[in-house]
Each structure stands twice: as structure tokens, then as C-alpha cells.
């Protein structure tokens, strides 16, 4: 594995190996010396064509804990905003000797395009491409679920996980669907019909328009952010009506299993898809997701860049 572009490219063995490695990284992060020398002298570029402070900081923290040199390239205020193409930017970074490019881009497929071009020879890690995928988010979601509901090892067989909200525009949902089902979980997509992609019924998921009927079945609910601009495109009538049918609130919390956890990839719209009560409740693991994000991204960087020996030969540089 040279790049991480999509969770659909991962085999079961690779996915488990990333999660196990992330668990190792988490243990190190809890110790007194948080830093590993593994990637000393390697250069990692955070190439962000789209604002995302939290994802960028998470990757930056992960790279720094592995002792890599990190260059942050934000397209805002840079030559990219003056019309420089992805190709020229990538070639410039290549000329500066980047070993890996972490790419965030508003265009679906940008990371795959970069990986399959000759514009850069380094590893490409997809940090979110348009409405396509966000694989490290799915990995941290799977990691968090495993920590809470599967004592931190193995896969997710026997668990039922609802992903609720704007599936149509969500790169997190697409990555989660592939990965969680690969790991054996049953995924239920819950959304109004307007926010489900055409043909989602062919995905390895169940689909429901009725959040309340799904709540008692699930071990985890993943609430997706609803963008304010969706309202102007007629996806639902009003924010109030959306919250009424698909928002997570105290009443709905009561319908969930006592062991079920609440997740959100952030940033949250409190009061729209999730109430403050739920976001801040003891059942919420939203901040743990953030913490786990660093461990998972350390694992990905380590496995892609350190040339880690592999028993199964599947993850090598």
C-alpha cells in the first residue's frame, strides 16, 4: 500500500492492521514521552485546498509525534487561489522533496488524480476529497467504536451502526460505509429520501427514513453535519422540520440501548442535527474521536512511510 485514497481500497487484513497499529500509537501517546523517532528526516506536506483546521492539525500532530518535518500548504492566500493548478502545486512540492502529500480538496477524486499522475512520487493520503471519501475519518470512527464496544481488538461483527443525515454530500458516510461493513458491522443509513444518493440501496447497508424506529436497534449513532446551504436547494423544507425528524435530542437518546454511543465527525451544528444535551452527554464519544484521530493518522503515516515490515506482505512501502 503506497497511498490511502479510499477505504474501499483496503482489505480486511490491512484495516485491522491499521487499527492495531493505531492502538499501539495511542499507548505511546499516553506515556511520558509522546514522540517516536520513526520518520525523522522525512518531509510531509499538508496540502489543503479547502479550509479544515481540525483535520490539518490532527495530521500535523500525528506527523510531528513521528518526528517528521511538516510543511503546511494552505491554498487560501497562496498561489493556488491565484489559479495555479493542482498539477503545478504538486510538481512544486515534489521539487522540494516531499515524501508524502496529505491532500484536502473540494473536488471529488483529487487525491486519486494526484496519486495516479506523475506529478508527485510521494505517498498520497486523502484527507477529504469533495463529496467522495475521507478515509482517515472512517478509520478513527472504526477505532473509536472498537475501543468502546469491542474492548479495543478484533473487528466490528455483530454491531449495528446508524449513520444519520446528509449521506448524499458526505465523504465521511461513503468512507464509513465501506470500512464498517468490511469490518463486519451492519450499517443503517438514516436520512430523508432527498439526502440519499441514487442507488444507495445497492450499497452494503440498510436504509431507513424513520430515525425513531432505528434507534432501539443501534450500538452507535453517527450524526452527520447538515450544511445550512442545503435548505436553499430544497433538500428539506426548514431546519426545524429537519431537526424534528432527524435531529438527535434527549427524547431520542432515551430510545437508544443503554450501551449505545453517540458520534459526530464535527464540526457540529448544535441545535440542528444534535442538541447540546446529547453532544455533551456521557454517551457522547465525540471528543474521543478527535483524540483517536491523531493515533489513527500516526498509524497511517507509519505504515505508509516507515516501510514497516509486514507478516502478510500487504502493507509495505
Amino acid at each position: 500500500m503506497r497511498h490511502l485514497l479510499s477505504t474501499s481500497d483496503l482489505t480486511y487484513t490491512q484495516a485491522i492492521r491499521i487499527l492495531d497499529t493505531a492502538a499501539e500509537m495511542a499507548r505511546i501517546s499516553e506515556g511520558p514521552v509522546k514522540k517516536l523517532p520513526t520518520l525523522r528526516g522525512r518531509t510531509i506536506v499538508n496540502l489543503f485546498f479547502e479550509d479544515s483546521t481540525r483535520t490539518r492539525i490532527s495530521f500535523e500532530a500525528a506527523a510531528k509525534r513521528l518526528s517528521a518535518d511538516v510543511i503546511n500548504f494552505s491554498a487560501k492566500g497562496s498561489s493556488a487561489s491565484k489559479g495555479e493548478s493542482l498539477k503545478d502545486t504538486a510538481q512544486t512540492l515534489q521539487a522540494m522533496g516531499a515524501d508524502a502529500v496529505i491532500l484536502r480538496h473540494s473536488a471529488s477524486g483529487a487525491a486519486q488524480r494526484l496519486a495516479n499522475s506523475h506529478w508527485t512520487s510521494g505517498s498520497v493520503i486523502n484527507a477529504g476529497d469533495g463529496t467522495h471519501e475521507h478515509p482517515t475519518q472512517a478509520l478513527l470512527d472504526a477505532f473509536t467504536i472498537r475501543q468502546h464496544l469491542r474492548v479495543g481488538t478484533g473487528d466490528l461483527r455483530g454491531l449495528t451502526i446508524a449513520i444519520v443525515g446528509d449521506i448524499l454530500h458526505s465523504r465521511v458516510a461513503r468512507s464509513d460505509v465501506h470500512l464498517l461493513s468490511l469490518l463486519g458491522a451492519q450499517v443503517i443509513l438514516v436520512a430523508p429520501p432527498t439526502l440519499l444518493p441514487i442507488g444507495a440501496s445497492t450499497w452494503p447497508v440498510q436504509i431507513s427514513y424513520d430515525f425513531d424506529s432505528v434507534l432501539p436497534l443501534v450500538d452507535a449513532v453517527m450524526m452527520l453535519r447538515v450544511q445550512q446551504e442545503r435548505m436553499s436547494d430544497f433538500f428539506f423544507p426548514t431546519a426545524r422540520e429537519y431537526s424534528h425528524y432527524y435531529g438527535l435530542n434527549a427524547d431520542r437518546l432515551k430510545k437508544m440501548k443503554p450501551t449505545a454511543i453517540i458520534m459526530h465527525p464535527g464540526p457540529m451544528n448544535r441545535g440542528l442535527e444534535i442538541t447540546a444535551e446529547c453532544a455533551d452527554s456521557a454517551r457522547s464519544v465525540i471528543l474521543e474521536q478527535v483524540t483517536n484521530g491523531v493515533s489513527v493518522r500516526m498509524a497511517v503515516l507509519y505504515l505508509l512511510l516507515a516501510g514497516a515490515p509486514s507478516e502478510d506482505g500487504e502493507i509495505t512501502q
Partner: peptide, 12 residues
């Protein structure tokens, strides 16, 4: 717009 566009996250 179809199965492929949904998978790829490209507007249909």
C-alpha cells in the same frame, strides 16, 4: 447520475 456518480461523489 447513477450508481457510479453516487460512489464517486460526483454531482449527477
Amino acid at each position: 447520475e447513477g450508481l457510479i456518480s453516487s460512489k464517486l461523489g460526483l454531482k449527477g
